[in-house]
Amino acid sequence: MAAPESGDGNNGAARMVTLISSDNTRFEVEAAAASLSQTLQLTILDGGGGGGDGIPLPNVDSATLSKVLEYCIKHAPAAANGGAPNATAVDRAELERFDNEFVNIDQSVLYSLIMAAHNLEIEGLQSLVAKKVADMIKGKSPMEIRRTLGFPDPTPEEQAEMNAHMLEYGWAYE
């Protein structure tokens, strides 16, 4: 969707838009990259974000936004090709390597990324962070998941409730 828009730039260069983080840092990126966000796409199609205006993102701080844009810039060319058809195996392997590296991050950053991907509706990033969380959950018991994800220790009541729930789907613990 975003490809023709960026390619039709009047002066040959890709169209740029400005995004403003919650702490007032301005980020200038190609419209094609920012359009990976479903939330921003409509605004950008309407011509928003250009010139000195900028699109304010009150829910995303600059550290998170720069991380999000790093993802978008990397994935924009593949997305413009409509996913995978033209991508070579090398390109895909490179993207995969980038993705793995990208989510190798602290949990507080992961938390911010999950929130940002959700707010900005960036499908690819949502899947990527969800997959990361899934990897942290897979193969673990509920107690181990709690420890891994930074839950406080359960109260005796919570512990009893956890044990009761575990009986309901016994097949999951074989």
Binding site: P142, I145, F151, P154, W171, A172
Partner: peptide, 9 residues
């Protein structure tokens, strides 16, 4: 993993 997650809290 959904079934396991259900027991987390």
């Amino acid at each position: 993993w959904l079934a396991v997650s259900r027991c987390v809290c």
